[in-house]
Design a protein around this nucleic acid. Structure first.
Lengths: 239, 239
DNA sequence: TTCTCAATGATTGTTGACAATCTTTTTCCA
DNA sequence: TGGAAAAAGATTGTCAACAATCATTGAGAA
């Protein structure tokens, strides 16, 4: 909840955050061409700052720029999502291992309290994945912070989590396994409390790889159930 | 050796690579203020492209930009290096695990051949750390490629390895443990050959954490041996 | 003398116009 | 009619000037 709206700042930075939001929410569709002049006019700024914003988004892997050919919103295909979850598994595993050694007792208590709040939310708003999804981010983000590794925090919060949010938005109907996830979260906090870094890492990695497995299977089902609707995809896909 | 010199491209991109090189080699000193006008004139380009290059370098964590205050070359202090090696341990561990499942037999053979070449180089140019250092990068880069995880490859080759090179350049006199490293490399290739992903990951992580331990200790010694020479550092250092 | 505050200078942020490149359309020939 | 080359259009890349902000210096008062 901190530093999200960015009330002031350079035009390039506010454009960057606005573009980020627009991409994550799907307002800008995947693979869509991003016309500099149009976007600049849309946000009421010049092309200079907008170009800098695009370069920044490129660094976050939200857009792909090709020289002299413009920028496009990244397309989150299945392979890329698999890559993302693998990287996430490695990084959050490490974060969890380190957090087990560096988090204060108070922070771990706060984390446990957070889980109780999530449990209530799940009971109250059964099926409301959107709120629970943000709660999930809170949990993982707090552990990343607990690692005290700034580079790790930047990588996770600054790059991966944006892509992950994009995934969630795209596959929001899927992945309704909030309750088992909550249980896994509890076990992770237990490992943190025991200051068992190795176990905490293993649990976190299992948690994330399990999440991907679940999402992956659901995508399979959805693709198998209506294969003719997606026939428009090019047969001879380039590169 | 591919796509390093970038003979052509946009001015912003060539400026980006030139700046990267200048920072890694120490031509631009750590913490140094980067004046846009000066740099633009130095590279014979306008300030627009140069600003885009700086934004790009910011994404690679080679410079730190502060709004209205300009950009500075990042300062690789001990904490940041520790963070870097921890992240690298996680990412390369995952890369190694995945590579064990996805690399072709031919690629693994090539990797083994590479190690033999390194062994010869070590015998021939004993102490020449620079060439061996690049060989080390080759090894790790090939394994990253073997993971077939594009995001992982981008993260390692595009961001972490640049910072790592910067470290090496700074601490080149230290870390002369090429021979044990070579032996560890051999064991990793053995694990890859056996298609044992878990073992390969463990060995790679041990290899990297050991490297950090070694560097860390050598930095300690250097700091302890001549403490009075560094007395000029500000007593009340501001933020 | 020292602290505060205003004025000056330097640097960054932004804009609009111009040049280079790519894409599309049109035209011409086979 | 089909395809290829050329011209027109649109888009990206680049530049130089202008505005806004920050840092420094100097003057003035306590």
């Amino acid at each position: 909840m901190l530093a999200l709206h960015t009330p002031e700042g350079t035009l390039a930075d506010v454009a960057s955050t606005k573009l980020t939001q627009a991409i994550i929410t799907g307002e800008l569709i995947q693979g869509q061409k991003l016309n500099e002049s149009d976007l600049a006019e849309r946000y009421g700024i010049g092309r200079g700052p907008l170009r800098e914003a695009l370069r920044q988004l490129e660094g976050m892997r939200l857009v792909k720029r090709i020289p002299h050919a413009g920028a496009r919103v990244v397309t989150l295909d299945r392979d890329m999502m698999a890559d993302l979850y693998a990287v996430r598994e490695a990084l959050e595993g490490m974060a969890c291992r380190t957090a087990a050694l560096r988090m204060t007792d108070a922070e771990i208590d706060t984390l446990r309290l957070l889980l109780e709040k999530h449990a209530e939310q799940i009971e109250a708003t059964d099926g409301q994945i959107y709120v629970q999804s943000e709660g999930d981010f809170d949990f993982h983000y707090q552990i990343a912070l607990g690692s005290r590794n700034q580079m790790l925090i930047d990588l996770l919060a600054g790059e991966l989590y944006q892509l992950l949010r994009m995934c969630r938005y795209r596959t929001s109907r899927l992945s309704a396994r909030t309750r088992p996830a909550l249980q896994q979260h509890r076990h992770i906090v237990d490992a943190l409390t025991a200051r068992d870094g190795e176990l905490a890492e293993i649990l976190m990695r299992r948690h994330i790889s399990g999440a991907w497995k679940s999402i992956s299977e659901m995508m399979d089902e959805e693709n198998d159930s209506k294969p003719k609707l997606i026939t428009r995809s090019k047969a001879a896909s380039g590169s």
